[in-house]
């Protein structure tokens, strides 16, 4: 299946995939929509472009975390082509995997492609290539669900259940299933949210680490509830459950630090990218701290 092709085509050029048939999804205009209803929540078609998502006023107003995350994806041209479905189903990335056929061949391949060894974790029988999409952590924090359609009909699963923490398997969806839509419950509309992304260049670059944080506050400024999603530091996007500790609490720098420290236990980056794992973990801590602090201390 090919949607925008911005992930798939570069990979095909590198010989990572050689499908005999590609099904182009772009013609499915009915899957290109963004709908919001105060009772039913948000629904986004899988063929919606990342640009449309980033430019949507209702998304910016009701789900700022998703708006911010979408704005950081790749570059303006890639956002015009790339779709939400493709972004969620993005292949995992690793310096030893995203290389040309010649390059990989010179090393005898890797566990994810044409080889037996994992070059970042020798001895490992799973693949540590990092899931590097930007919208998934935001949608995880918003408790999104995805609708899958296939020969056996439609089903809806929590987004968290779409992923497997192994670069070899990646997704739970069957090969003959496609993502048709993403839904965010109405209860999560209007939450404060922000997305922080570690990258060397402020455009084009995939995340080296990404932190999505949402928070609902009470009238007295205390935190009613908060959720934190991480990306690019594991083979799948993950939630930081330690954010539960914030529920019902008044702002406290110590508590923020506590949760930020917990966050780096969830993120386990290996040397899959140019930055070191130490630095990527350190930045998760800084970003969680900054994001929580900003949201908690912001005016509304």
């Amino acid at each position: 299946m090919i949607a925008g092709g911005t992930d798939l085509l570069p990979s095909m050029k590198q010989g990572l995939f050689a499908p005999r048939v590609l099904i182009d999804l772009k013609g499915l205009r009915e899957l290109d929509f963004i709908r919001f209803d105060a009772r039913r929540g948000l629904e986004i078609g899988a063929l919606t472009t990342i640009s449309a998502l980033a430019n949507s006023q209702v998304v910016a107003r009701e789900f700022p975390v998703l708006h911010e995350a979408a704005k950081t994806v790749a570059s303006p041209l890639l956002r015009n082509m790339g779709t939400l479905g493709g972004n969620l189903c993005l292949d995992t990335r690793c310096l030893y995997y995203n290389q040309s056929e010649f390059w990989r061949g010179s090393l005898g391949g890797c566990i994810k492609k044409d080889g037996a060894v994992c070059h970042v974790a020798p001895g490992s029988d799973t693949c540590w290539a990092a899931f590097s999409g930007d919208t998934a952590p935001a949608l995880l924090a918003l408790e999104a669900t995805v609708e899958l359609a296939g020969p056996r009909g439609r089903r809806e699963i929590p987004l968290a259940e779409l992923y497997v923490n192994d670069g070899l398997v990646r997704l739970t969806k069957a090969a003959d299933e496609m993502v048709t839509a993403v839904r965010v419950p109405a209860a999560n509309a209007g939450w404060l949210g922000t997305y922080r992304k570690l990258r060397i260049r402020q455009s084009i670059d995939y995340p080296l680490a990404g932190v999505a944080v949402v928070m609902r506050k009470r009238a007295d400024g205390s935190c009613a509830q908060a959720r934190i999603g991480l990306t690019a530091v594991n083979p799948m996007p993950r939630l930081v459950t330690a954010s539960d500790r914030l529920a019902g609490q008044a702002y406290s720098a110590a508590l923020v630090e506590d949760v930020a420290r917990e966050a780096i236990r969830v993120g386990k980056p290996l040397k899959t990218s140019a930055s070191t794992m130490e630095y990527r973990r350190q930045m998760i801590q800084v970003f969680v701290r900054r994001a929580l602090t900003d949201l908690w201390r912001s005016a509304n």
Partner: peptide, 18 residues
């Protein structure tokens, strides 16, 4: 002896934003 970044995505010349 293997170049880890033989491409313009990982060999990072400044984008307009930098």
């Amino acid at each position: 002896g293997r170049l880890m970044n033989p491409g313009l995505l990982e060999y990072r010349s400044a984008s307009t934003l930098e």
